[in-house]
Design a binder for these strands. Structure first.
Lengths: 249, 249
DNA sequence: ATGCCATACTTGGTCCAACAAATAAGGGCC
DNA sequence: GGCCCTTATTTGTTGGACCAAGTATGGCAT
């Protein structure tokens, strides 16, 4: 067996150590997924009707519906009334939503998430400085500029997140980016809190600009210092009754 | 509104911009979750029977069952015949499973995941060196020792992962740890591939031991060098037809 | 022939009734 | 008292029914 063949081995296989005792619903979920694979269906393609699926797989319609609810929870299908179930691209969104469940926000998780961001965003400095093109850094400027033109707290928080997302994107690592995006709801909420108490858009913009300049001058030390300070800034206000507000990330 | 109050604001609220057209199933999912919160139910507590839930929330049993399937997919409840639905601690597992089949493994993702690990595991060196107690580092030795006593490929891969998991745990960041654990299926598969071609348990053990020693001597540079080399080692074999195997992480 | 509209059909949403299977609980037997 | 068996309850699964809302069809007017 070659490396490649082994790498392509299914990950799902090892997650099924119990071959017996599989419910009809679980069986249907797998059968539908298999059908999607076999027929090479893509996003937007429609599945057979619930009644057809029931007949094809020898199951009642209610059982089919329970399976479809599972697939819907997974973000694999989206079912529109009177139209049918169509393959969906909401999978990542479903993962994000599910992940956010367990991360209910609190002062503790505020600090925790900021600590995570510091590790990640500081850790990618080297790679960005070595590999980012001038066009990449100009793009950061563009994204950063959007923070100034939006006035609402929600809009500003979204733009703020997009800047940091663009930064992480420059690390060129899909896994890291996917993990970072998982935290989007939590991070955005943190940013909203910081921006709600008083307008800090201009401050945020300027700090971001300094960070970009450090990257443009390929100054590792300055980047690490600036990003760490930027992300640590709000921590001093958390866990207190102060309403001075935290400067968001 | 104080900082704390804002931080505790629900994250779920902003994810519902569509107030109209909510199905009975979705409504039930929320109602059950709300019931769990209000009654302060904890892991292991049982929910009312399907019929009772249907009567309480004015819904048919099939509708209740569809909602329970969703909650089951989320890993929030586990339902056993006759005993009913009980609150489950499989939520993280559900997230992991869901996250995994978006990350189908390939040589590209192999490199990508290793790159992610390098960023993370190198980035936490400073914190570990500054904050880890001698007991923490002794614990790493213990975990590392388990690699030698297990012979099977699967067992060895699991132990290998547990060492790196313990390392990440020492970073003292819950968010980071949760994200790292999300990749467990992928990482373990990578390790299995590395260990399947030839036995490298002893090599892995020794490299790990060197890493621990670097931490014990609080040597940042040595740690960063060792962990980077350790995680990059396998990359040179990936994407080729070579069967020499990759030394796993 | 073409475009519009009303009707019938299709399809998901919800609920009910029924039966099978599994299991916890209680009674009976030793 | 402890073990086994019966029983009752609950989930698992199916089929059917009805509703509401889209979709398709066919007729009608121009």
């Amino acid at each position: 067996m070659t490396m490649d063949a082994m790498l392509f081995a299914s990950l799902a296989a090892d997650a099924a150590p119990e071959p017996a005792k599989v419910s009809a619903v679980d069986r249907l979920v797998e059968q539908v997924r298999e059908m999607v694979r076999e027929r090479g269906l893509v996003i937007g393609d429609a599945l057979p009707t619930e009644r057809d699926l029931g007949e094809q797989f020898q199951a009642g319609r209610n059982t089919v519906r329970e399976a479809l609810q599972v697939l819907k929870a997974y973000g694999i299908v989206e079912v529109r009334p009177k139209v049918g179930a169509v393959l969906s691209d909401r999978h990542e969104e479903a993962v994000r939503k599910l992940f956010a469940f367990q991360n209910d926000i609190s002062p503790a998780s505020f600090m925790d998430v900021q600590g995570y961001r510091r590790i990640v965003e500081a850790g990618i400095g080297d790679h960005i400085i070595l590999h980012a093109t001038p066009a990449d850094l100009d793009h950061l400027d563009e994204v950063n500029a959007r923070i100034l033109v939006n006035q609402g707290v929600d809009e500003a928080a979204r733009c703020d997140f997009e800047f940091h997302e663009a930064l992480v994107t420059l690390a060129g690592n899909r896994t890291l980016l996917a993990n970072y995006r998982l935290l989007q709801p939590v991070i955005t909420q943190i940013m909203r809190v910081g921006k709600a108490t008083r307008p800090v858009q201009i401050d945020t913009f300027e700090v971001h600009a300094q960070i970009i300049n450090a990257l443009k001058s390929r100054d590792r030390v300055a980047y690490t210092y600036l990003i760490s300070r930027h992300l640590e800034y709000g921590l001093q206000f958390v866990g207190t009754e102060s309403d001075r507000g935290a400067r968001s990330g």
